[in-house]
Design a protein around this nucleic acid. Sequence first.
DNA 1: AATGAATGAGAATTCATTCAT
DNA 2: GATGAATGAATTCTCATTCAT
Lengths: 206, 206, 206, 206
Amino acid sequence: MPSPSASLTKPRKRPTQARAQATVEAILRASAHILGAEGYDAVTTNRVAARAGVSIGSLYQYFPSKEAMVAELVDRHCDRMNGLFAGVFMRARHLPPRELTRELVGAIYRAKHEDPKLSRALREQLPKVGRLRRFEESIEDITRVVAAYFEDNRALLRVPCPRRAAMYVVELGEHLTMASISKTPEVDPEVAIDDITDVIVRYVLA
Amino acid sequence: MPSPSASLTKPRKRPTQARAQATVEAILRASAHILGAEGYDAVTTNRVAARAGVSIGSLYQYFPSKEAMVAELVDRHCDRMNGLFAGVFMRARHLPPRELTRELVGAIYRAKHEDPKLSRALREQLPKVGRLRRFEESIEDITRVVAAYFEDNRALLRVPCPRRAAMYVVELGEHLTMASISKTPEVDPEVAIDDITDVIVRYVLA
Amino acid sequence: MPSPSASLTKPRKRPTQARAQATVEAILRASAHILGAEGYDAVTTNRVAARAGVSIGSLYQYFPSKEAMVAELVDRHCDRMNGLFAGVFMRARHLPPRELTRELVGAIYRAKHEDPKLSRALREQLPKVGRLRRFEESIEDITRVVAAYFEDNRALLRVPCPRRAAMYVVELGEHLTMASISKTPEVDPEVAIDDITDVIVRYVLA
Amino acid sequence: MPSPSASLTKPRKRPTQARAQATVEAILRASAHILGAEGYDAVTTNRVAARAGVSIGSLYQYFPSKEAMVAELVDRHCDRMNGLFAGVFMRARHLPPRELTRELVGAIYRAKHEDPKLSRALREQLPKVGRLRRFEESIEDITRVVAAYFEDNRALLRVPCPRRAAMYVVELGEHLTMASISKTPEVDPEVAIDDITDVIVRYVLA
DNA sequence: AATGAATGAGAATTCATTCAT
DNA sequence: GATGAATGAATTCTCATTCAT
């Protein structure tokens, strides 16, 4: 029995057979490709189905709408980023602040760097796809983690308000990685990561 | 100044020009309103014409396409921002770097503050292709000005590459003002401007 | 400014030009034809537009949905029937009961007889088209008129409850005309009208 | 009766048949439910299969098409109604006409009363083509029985044409029961049955 | 026999744009 | 110039039905 709160962007059915799983993956891969290469408006359900080598009907078996399909892409992307952040933070939390920061920025940077245009498109289509709230929540989660870290390490901190500093830092980390990847993908990642780390660290540390 | 005895029924300028101007303004105002309030997808030519109190035919009299219409909006916005930036920069370029930065951030902040939603839509929702790329180009213009300033004042600079530093600084100024206005509108503008200035200055200055 | 309560079946715009009026009529004529000849499922917007010699876009200029289009057909039909009933009742209310009844039945019968299949389809598609309520209200109106007449002429009445008698009579008049027209369109209208009148009169009159 | 010593693990009938029967019943029950509750348009083969707890493949194992499935529903309903009518008619055919009529109306009334919405949907919402015409045919069958009775009892008859009288009477019985059940469910069934009987008898009998 | 994944024709609807008046 | 009626390609989505496993 499906949940009564089934939303418009909730996947339609859990594919159980391997074949179905493959279909879903093919669809998502096709969406991602078109979205990255030509932008959201080029993502039409028929094109996605065609590129996935699947009938349009199959697409709608698994996704109730075009938005749901892209939302799934967004969800996976967010999950991946959140997981990455949490994982690196766990592993590196006892490093000195600069190194910790560099690890975090580096992880995010490299993840987005794999497909800059897709990352950007995903970020931009959040509102259309009803995932803005979810994304903001995950940003807030991260901000909370950072703020807690700042509270615990006030001695290192240059700025007075840990809460607001955390917000700036997260905003800044998110945005500068994105901007750097979109606008200067040719710059050596290590250099870009250094720069972004630098912006953050200089602002925050005593 | 025309003679005061000119017939009251004879308009001073060719009426067509004055009326045409009014029509164009009404159209752009309507586009801007819809764009800010409901986003780019809601900006349809028919709706714009309706809201502007103008027939769809007239809209196409003045704009050859929807893209041209929105491009005009973008152009004006960019012209205004660039003018603002250039003006403040001219006036304040001999202030100490921190004050100069603060002036610039403040100007941008206040300009965006007038219509946060429109500013945001203009920045985030427009397709990044064709004439609508103008926004990005205008950012690049500003970046060039900043980079030139950095080149001229290398002595003050902490970071090695003025070009890249300029990019980070502009992105950061752009984005943090927007984020601050949208996400923490309750914070005193002066405080927000101070913080953003701080982020920039700490990063850049020796 | 359109009414804020604009419903899904409310026509989209009042056509003002003669050409537009002609378009609307052509669309409605085409709908009516297909509905009568092949039933509701055959009424597709594209077919209607094609048959009306009009583009699909034009159809949607005037009707926000397929339902709205058929609803307009229903509305016109109901208006016509109500008007007919009211008109005949006014004109014939002082005739002896049997003649009055015959006039009313005859008017309805002849109106429906013009296009039996269309009348039937219209009647059957009321729920799908969101006009059930409206139809029922107009039946209730008529029932009230009949009930009032019965109250005023209790002496003639055989049955005890004028209210319920009115309901039976209207139900019966509605349905028997419909059934007679659909199932035995070959029977001489005058005979059918006599029969139906007879059913009603025998039941009701002392 | 099979031997009581038959192995308990060996089903008495070929299991396939019993299971198949159960499947068919489940499918028909599901169709009937959806048809009654949400109307014919909501009856989709996939939904029916889901509600029946059966795969769509199985549904097509037992019914070659959607039409066949609904036709089976109609057939059963008609068989039941015709059987009921025939049974009561057999049993009561020698009662005086008024009592006979009352028996028949009562039987129909009670049968429809069991599931008014399904009865109504069956009558009003099904396409009148192909195998689904069966409903109309079944009405015609009943009409023939009534007509035959009228022929055999011309002496009692007030109206000249037994054939047409039969049609009116059946339509009227059908429709007034339905209307009474749907529109005035609060009225005591016995009273409603009396009224309907009265309409019929007054019309027909000398 | 059963399953459920896959199919695809076909339906409704939108919206930038054209053009006759 | 202005108007607004008309256009139709393009898009989303449904649902009866087939078929491989």
